[in-house]
Amino acid sequence: MSARRRPPKNKSSQKNSASNSVLPSFPKCYKKNSKPHKFCPGCGHPIVLKMLGQAIDELKIQNKSVFLIDIGCSLLAWDFYNIDTTQTHHGRTIPVALGFKRANPEAVVIAYLGDGGAYSIGMQHLVHATLRNENITTIVVNNMNYGMTGGQMAPTTITEQPPTTTAPFGRKEKYLGTPLKGPEMLEKIGVPGQYIARMSVDVPPQLKLTLKKALQHQMDKKGFSFVEALSYCPNNWKTNAAETIATLQKAKQEFPTYEKEL
């Protein structure tokens, strides 16, 4: 899968855009020389990342945050922010995050991963981090397929979405299993006080608010906080803008907005 890049802007135009606010301004914590970002056109990740960036700005935690990302499309954000970052794979981002937090409790530690890492290959980490109430914030971007590997079926793939390369006849649940619902699952095993939410990328302000609450939860030392950002992947869904939105609307039936402090 190739990231189609826009031609880089020259320095002066970037300066202008920041100063005269004609174009929406970048969050302050962005690493400007890594923009334009590496995600596909129409991808949901940049919306989540922008809302997260604004939340970090508003909470003034840029200098004490650690942003840990996983394999898959999330790794394209390895230099997205002017925030200390590293990346592992297969959901091991959650162990790295809790190891960091246990060694530096003052840091705001964010594990950012996809639905494959969090709900499939690294599911045990999510489950046990919840059970132990690790004081970290986990953000899972659920785009209902494996984006970076070319659009294969994910644990979150639903029957109503365009076929994936490994479920070309659609996800027939009788043969291919039932989609996994992250927040609803964690609610069953969670510890009282945990913040668990799902918000979708088509409502950015609400998404930002949710992310901010999750980070604040960690800063207040209240334990594990979790946000699933329901997202889209037009590149692999092979959908145009209208179809993308329509698919997301169908997905919201399956993965409704969710917010609970357990």
């Binding site: 091991r92 162990p95 190891g99």
Partner: peptide, 19 residues
């Protein structure tokens, strides 16, 4: 930990934090 991957990667996390 819940498994050896967690042991290894959590160790990495703590080392990244300087412990």
């Amino acid at each position: 930990c819940e498994d050896e991957m967690t042991s290894g990667f959590a160790m990495i996390g703590s080392c990244l934090a300087g412990k």
